[in-house]
Simulated assay, not measured.
Amino acid sequence: MTSSIAGVAVITGASSGIGEATARHLHAAGFKVALLARRRDRIDALAADLGDGALAIEADVTDRDALVAAAEQVKKELGGADVLVNNAGVMLLGPFSADQRGDYRQMIEVNLLGAITTTEVFLDQLTASGRADIINISSVAGRTARSGNGVYAATKWGINGWSEALRQELLPTVRVTLIEPGVVATELPTHITHESTNTAVNEMYSKAEVTADDIAEVIAFAIGRPRHLAINEILLRPSTQV
């Protein structure tokens, strides 16, 4: 990556998958990275592995008080955010029924409200930077809804619409980029609670060839463009995915 800036990147969901891979790529490119996630042991291990310039902060994106405390820590210890990667998310697929109502609420609170709240909390730091980027991780499901993914798709369609409005509000000081991956080899499907859906989706994901590193490279590329160029939206799928 040839970066046009180096600064401080805040990454939610940094304990695994795309979040962890993005942290590694940006840190290697010269960024200080704030690793936000609920699983403290994992982000502590990642911060230790990365070394200087990596800060582990235990925070749940559904808890605004925790995010406010995280933002204060980022400001105090790293100087403030220049990049925010809204990566935290859950994919709890299954048929639409009352049995899944807890999963529906969790997806809405994490995938949609979590990204919105995190951005709101860090927005002052990002606008003060004068050269900031917001990366919102959406999904192919933000464009194509399928049987069994209705509420998940609703959260991703919501992210897409919000991202476009936010892009228009914040330009040119803050660039907003929407990343829409297809199937990626991560632990995302392992948390599905509906048994038959879990089996079917994990079977598909077990064959995934696109990795979290592939997505992280795309994110790093978008952030590294000269400030006069904004990449607004990137849709990417495995070459074999319909």
Rank of each mutant, 00 (worst) to 15 (best):
M1T: 14
M1G: 11
T2S: 15
S4P: 10
S4V: 05
I5Q: 14
V8E: 12
V8G: 13
S16H: 03
G17R: 00
G19M: 09
A21M: 04
T22N: 07
L26R: 11
L26Q: 04
G30K: 05
F31N: 09
K32H: 15
K32M: 10
V33D: 11
L36Y: 02
A37S: 02
R38H: 06
R39T: 02
I43Y: 11
A47T: 08
A48M: 05
I57G: 11
I57R: 12
A59G: 05
R64E: 05
R64W: 03
D65R: 12
D65V: 05
A66M: 02
A66D: 02
V68S: 01
V68T: 08
A70C: 06
E72Q: 09
Q73R: 15
V74E: 02
K75T: 11
K76M: 12
A81G: 04
A81H: 05
D82P: 07
D82G: 11
V83L: 07
N87G: 03
N87S: 04
V90F: 00
V90M: 01
G94A: 06
S97Y: 03
D99S: 09
D99E: 13
Q100S: 14
I108C: 01
E109L: 00
E109N: 01
N111M: 02
L112P: 06
A115F: 01
A115W: 01
I116W: 14
I116S: 10
T119H: 06
F122V: 05
D124V: 03
L126M: 07
A128R: 08
S129Y: 03
G130H: 08
A132N: 04
D133R: 13
I134H: 08
I134V: 10
I134E: 06
N136K: 04
N136I: 08
S139C: 01
S139I: 00
S139V: 00
V140T: 10
A141S: 15
R143S: 00
A145D: 04
V151W: 00
Y152A: 00
A154D: 00
I159C: 02
I159Q: 03
N160R: 14
G161E: 06
S163N: 05
L166R: 02
L166G: 01
R167G: 04
P172Y: 09
P172D: 04
T173N: 10
V174C: 02
V176S: 06
T177Q: 09
I179V: 10
G182I: 03
V183E: 09
V183R: 15
V184E: 03
T186K: 11
I192M: 09
E195S: 10
E195T: 09
S196W: 09
T199V: 15
V201D: 07
V201A: 08
N202D: 05
E203T: 15
M204Q: 15
S206G: 15
V210W: 06
V210A: 07
T211R: 13
T211N: 13
D214R: 05
V218C: 09
I219Q: 04
F221D: 01
F221C: 04
A222I: 03
A222Q: 08
L229M: 08
L229A: 07
A230K: 11
I231W: 06
I234R: 04
I234V: 11
I234A: 01
L236E: 00
R237I: 05
S239E: 13
T240Y: 14
T240C: 06
V242N: 14
